[in-house]
Simulated assay, not measured.
Amino acid sequence: MTTMDQLAMKQTEQQLQQATQQLTQMQGLAVEQATTATQQQLEQVQQQIEQAAQTLQLIESLQSGNNSFKKGLD
């Protein structure tokens, strides 16, 4: 193997290492983004649950008020 071939091999090895590092970084970012998206979805679900609970309380409150009103009419 000539010196030129050895240099070319070393350059190729370095490029492969850089590509591997970049891929690892990208995979890390992808995981972080997925986690963020999942967190956002969980937050949305939590908000929906809270809204549903508030709606339920409102319905119960209105039913209770309606029942009181009906009793007042009797």
Rank of each mutant, 00 (worst) to 15 (best):
M1I: 01
M1L: 02
M1H: 01
T2M: 02
T2N: 11
T2P: 00
M4C: 03
Q6R: 09
Q6M: 06
Q6L: 06
Q6A: 11
L7S: 02
A8F: 03
A8G: 01
M9C: 07
M9I: 02
K10V: 02
K10Y: 01
K10E: 10
Q11N: 11
T12W: 05
E13L: 02
E13D: 06
Q14N: 03
Q14Y: 02
Q15E: 15
Q15P: 00
Q15M: 06
Q15H: 01
L16D: 06
Q18T: 04
Q18W: 02
A19V: 00
A19Y: 05
T20A: 10
T20D: 04
T20F: 05
T20I: 07
T20V: 06
Q21V: 00
Q21L: 05
Q21R: 05
Q22R: 11
Q22A: 13
L23F: 06
T24Y: 01
T24Q: 14
T24L: 08
Q25T: 05
M26G: 02
G28E: 04
G28Q: 08
G28L: 03
G28R: 02
L29V: 11
L29A: 12
A30D: 13
A30P: 02
V31W: 05
V31D: 03
E32V: 01
E32D: 12
E32W: 01
E32C: 00
Q33Y: 03
Q33L: 14
Q33I: 14
T35A: 08
T35N: 14
T36Y: 11
T36N: 10
A37G: 11
A37R: 12
T38G: 03
T38S: 15
Q41W: 10
Q41C: 09
L42Q: 14
L42Y: 11
L42I: 14
E43R: 13
E43W: 00
E43H: 10
Q44W: 06
V45A: 15
V45T: 09
V45S: 09
V45D: 11
Q46T: 08
Q48N: 15
I49D: 04
I49S: 03
E50K: 07
Q51W: 03
A52E: 07
A53G: 02
A53Y: 06
T55V: 10
T55Q: 14
L56Y: 06
L58S: 13
E60K: 08
E60I: 07
S61F: 01
S61N: 09
S61T: 10
L62G: 01
Q63C: 07
Q63N: 08
S64R: 08
S64F: 04
S64G: 08
N67T: 15
N67F: 09
S68A: 13
S68L: 12
F69W: 13
K70N: 09
K70A: 12
K71T: 15
G72C: 10
D74Q: 11
D74S: 09
D74G: 12
D74L: 13
